Simulated assay, not measured.
Amino acid sequence: MEIKAGIREKTGKEVARKLRREGKIPCVAYGRGEPTLHLWVNSDVLRKLLKEERTRGGVEFVTLNIDGVGKKHAFIKEIQRNPISLQIQHVDFRIVHAGEKIYITLPIVLVGEPIGVRRGGVLDQLLHEIEVEAYLKDIPPHIEVNVEHLAIGDTIMVRDLPAQDKLRYTESPDTPVATILAPRVTVEEEKKPEEEEVAPPTEEAPPTEE
């Protein structure tokens, strides 16, 4: 996907607010051996890119077509959002080169229905993404993990992830990725039968003296 990006001649909060009012998102682009570029991109185009990332379930590499600079291959490194409205406020693009080894965070996608789930257990994914080191051409959109064999009580660790000849996981091998929890059993206490209330004996009225 190619995205047109303009150069920001000025920076600062007021400039950023003005850009957002115009339907543009302030950005920066940086990379190894590259000067930091202060940019803006169209907010609608950026939303389309993020939608494609969600649909494909992975990192989307783009070509930034920057005014006066040319084309740069990049991916979204960080997104800053308004904590209340969740609207995008700022985006960091990481510029990459074909022969460069980079660190990038990839989503972990669990595939299949575990044996333990079919027997009443609950699949709990503890690690949803993982950082890897690899050359640009060897980076997959995500890390796919088959969990069909997991029984209740089983756990997959980072060391159990699919072996990758051309990338390296940077996370500790002992970090848990997913586990099958035992089903919760709710035991209701048997209700004791309510005892019949016995009315207190009524006292006989004393005889009336005539």
Rank of each mutant, 00 (worst) to 15 (best):
E9N: 13
E100Q: 15
V62L: 15
G112L: 09
R47S: 11
R81S: 03
F75E: 09
I66N: 02
L49S: 07
V132W: 10
R94A: 09
I76F: 04
E195N: 02
Q80L: 09
V177Y: 12
E203S: 07
E34A: 03
R8A: 11
S85F: 03
L181Q: 09
V117A: 04
I108Q: 14
L123P: 13
A182H: 04
E203V: 11
E131R: 15
L19E: 07
H38W: 02
D165G: 14
P207H: 09
E190S: 03
I88F: 05
E113R: 12
N65E: 13
E34K: 08
I76Y: 07
I180W: 00
A163I: 12
E113S: 08
P162S: 06
G70N: 08
E22K: 15
T36Y: 04
V117H: 02
G120E: 03
E34H: 09
I143L: 10
E52N: 13
L37S: 01
H73S: 15
T175Y: 01
G57E: 09
C27W: 00
T63G: 07
T170I: 15
I115V: 13
L86S: 08
V111L: 12
L167I: 14
G68Q: 05
L181E: 08
A29K: 00
K192D: 11
V185N: 01
A182K: 03
A151H: 14
M157A: 05
T175I: 04
G116A: 01
L150N: 02
T208V: 14
P201M: 01
F75D: 09
P35K: 09
A199Y: 02
L136P: 04
L64D: 13
K24R: 15
R118Q: 11
I66W: 03
V111M: 12
P141F: 12
L136N: 02
V177H: 14
